[in-house]
């Protein structure tokens, strides 16, 4: 498998605090790659650097053979990396349909074509019947799927999901896992940042563990779960 996304020695510091310290990893084409870590491990900072919301202080981020570090968030999206937000932010005052149309318009100048594509995605994510609802009136699981639909509408090659399972009930989590598996099976590369271990173990093909800004382990979910350093710092001794 070829690498779709490669980070080498990426760092970010906030004044004295080193949030991400020389992290390197590669996400193969077609992977379901998870980054896990406790609160403050630097997951979201790492995520924001890949998505263009923050500029790295050092290191390189290469996507599909081209450096994307230092590009703005919109330019990163146009290159083919779409994201969701940890605290969901669909366009609150617009209808569900319009939210997804906006994403679809990125590579489709024609509104009618964009609407058609938006409808396809809304059907897939079980939101079609709610397409005329105003986004702010949806429940949290619906808003999470709406944000995913908007991200998918931009036609990404890599989907970045920031704690997409957080706050979901178990049945909703299973529904989300099924959706992600289906998308991945169609060839979409997904990079997840997660706190919920259960979802990651069921889903990911690769796992990277961050601790205090440093990557301490990488491998399959089983390998990582057995890694002594991971058990020590993240999973806690009791869970073994």
């Amino acid at each position: 498998m070829t690498a779709l996304l490669a980070l080498s020695n990426v760092s970010k510091r906030f004044r004295g605090l080193i949030a991400v310290d020389g992290v390197s990893f590669t996400v193969p084409q077609g992977a379901m790659f998870a980054v896990i870590g406790s609160n403050g491990a630097g997951k979201t900072t790492l995520f924001n650097m890949i998505a263009g919301a923050m500029k790295p202080d050092g290191g390189a981020i290469v996507f599909a053979g081209q450096g994307v570090h230092g590009l703005t968030a919109d330019a990163v999206c146009r290159r083919g990396i779409a994201r969701t937000f940890q605290i969901v932010r669909p366009f609150p005052g617009l209808s569900v349909e319009d939210n997804v149309i906006i994403g679809a318009l990125l590579h489709r100048p024609d509104v009618t074509a964009a609407r058609g594509h938006a409808h396809e995605l809304l059907r897939r994510l079980d939101l079609f019947d709610k397409r005329h609802r105003i986004a702010s009136t949806l429940t949290l699981p619906d808003r999470k799927r709406l944000e995913m639909a908007r991200a998918l509408a931009t036609g990404p090659r890599l989907l970045l999901l920031d704690e997409v399972m957080a706050g979901l009930r178990p049945t909703e989590t299973d529904r989300m896992v099924a959706i992600l598996k289906a998308l991945n099976a169609e060839g979409l590369t997904i990079l997840l940042i997660e706190h919920v271990m259960r979802a990651v173990m069921a889903l990911a093909s690769h796992v990277l563990v961050l601790d205090h800004g440093v990557a301490i382990a990488e491998g399959s979910p089983e390998q990582v779960a057995r890694d002594p350093a991971v058990v020590q710092s993240y999973l806690g001794v009791e869970t073994v």
């Binding site: 703005t72 999206c77 617009l94 990125l106």
Partner: peptide, 15 residues
């Protein structure tokens, strides 16, 4: 409308 509603989200959608 996307910018009016949420500029950060609009940028994330490639605008």
């Amino acid at each position: 409308l996307a910018i009016r509603e949420d500029e950060t989200a609009a940028r994330a959608a490639g605008i």
